[in-house]
Simulated assay, not measured.
Amino acid sequence: MIECVDEFAAPGLSRRGLLAGAASAVLLSACGKAIKPPPERVLFVGNSLIYYNDMPGQFAQLASMALGRRVEAEMLARGGAHISHHAKLGLVQRELSSGRYSALVLQEFGGGLSCSPGMLKFGFSCETSHAAHAELAEAARAAGARAVLLGVYRQHTGSAAELVAKEAELARQIGALHIGLGDFPQLLSMHSDWAWLDPEDGQHPGPDLSLLMALRTVRALYARAPRAGAIALALHDYRGRESPSLDRLASMQEVGAAMIERRLDAEEFAQRLRAAGLERPAVVR
């Protein structure tokens, strides 16, 4: 016989408490009480191409808007890190084994998957990278999470097309979704006034490129789009000495990254949605 109680105290749920939480949810359901599902979590793994403009944070806000429920993002990243560095350390695998994540998003060291001989000077091996991607994608599947290969941008049409083809083939081999950025040269030409690249170095993502990657990740995982309209995004500024380290989740680091707010009016955001391949009805003013 199930005995129902008026209140259920649920302090911060530990990883070991997930099964107990699920059992409690069944109990509350039997008692006729509303069940609030835990937030969905996505783990982003990569390097500075991810943490510039807090791309995972943007994704979480946009995905929450698109789905109408809370989506959270965690990040493991370090400037210059390869996916093989992450796989060797083992933290990604341990995080996935917790069962907290619904998806794993991998972004490789810039241009590495082109497999050009010039990458050797960065200690990058395509063979090692492919093996690491396969290992982490398998760890994601074993934990019930989807694996996603988030592509890297190139500014020239030929090199962008070559890179996106090699990324897509690797994604096929490891059973991952692929998010390509092969059209970046065209977008760069069409919207030359957008903040595509970081103004300080001209290489890292600027606010609009990070937003494009975040929106395309929302599209790949959920096939949904945030409602068009004016928007304000709160971002951590992880650049410089505030950048994440390889051995801890960004949320566990005391980096003191400042918060930046980015506002886009309804038309500006509608344009970015279209650039990401997310069409929405026109906003009625």
Rank of each mutant, 00 (worst) to 15 (best):
L221M: 02
R241H: 09
H130D: 15
K121I: 12
I174G: 03
M190V: 06
E169I: 10
F8A: 15
V45Y: 06
M1Q: 13
L136W: 04
G57S: 08
C126T: 01
G202D: 11
A131E: 14
Q271I: 12
L264T: 06
R94Q: 09
M65C: 02
W196E: 05
C4G: 02
G110Q: 06
A131L: 12
D265F: 12
G68K: 11
L187T: 12
S192Q: 14
E135K: 10
L233G: 12
V26L: 10
F109W: 12
G151S: 08
L177C: 13
A195Q: 02
A282P: 07
Q186T: 14
H82A: 06
E138L: 07
L264G: 07
A276P: 01
Q93W: 08
A142D: 14
M1S: 14
L278G: 05
L67A: 07
R146H: 09
S84E: 06
I35E: 09
L209S: 11
D193Q: 15
Q93E: 12
R241D: 09
G118P: 06
G68Y: 03
V105G: 07
A132E: 00
R280P: 13
A228N: 02
A145G: 11
S125Y: 12
G17A: 06
A171N: 05
L43T: 03
Q253G: 03
V148E: 08
E3V: 15
H130L: 13
M259W: 13
A87Y: 04
A25Y: 10
G46S: 07
R216C: 10
L212P: 00
Q253R: 01
A137H: 00
S114K: 08
K121E: 13
Y101D: 05
N53I: 01
T217G: 07
R41C: 09
D201H: 14
L106D: 02
A10R: 15
V42S: 06
H178K: 00
L233D: 04
A160N: 07
Y238F: 15
F122N: 07
E138H: 00
F269L: 08
L13M: 07
R248L: 08
L28I: 08
A66D: 10
Q58W: 05
D198C: 03
G182R: 13
L76K: 00
E242K: 04
A132R: 10
L233P: 00
V42W: 12
S102A: 11
F59W: 02
L62T: 06
R100I: 03
A223M: 01
L212H: 03
G180D: 05
V152R: 00
T157H: 11
P281D: 07
G46D: 11
E127M: 06
V152W: 04
R70H: 07
G32V: 02
G90E: 01
G111Y: 03
R100L: 12
A22S: 12
L211I: 09
L249C: 01
L28S: 13
A234L: 03
A73I: 09
K33P: 10
Y222W: 13
C4M: 14
V5L: 05
Q58T: 11
Q155A: 13
L188N: 13
P226D: 10
P205G: 01
A140S: 08
E135L: 08
L49R: 14
A140E: 04
G151D: 03
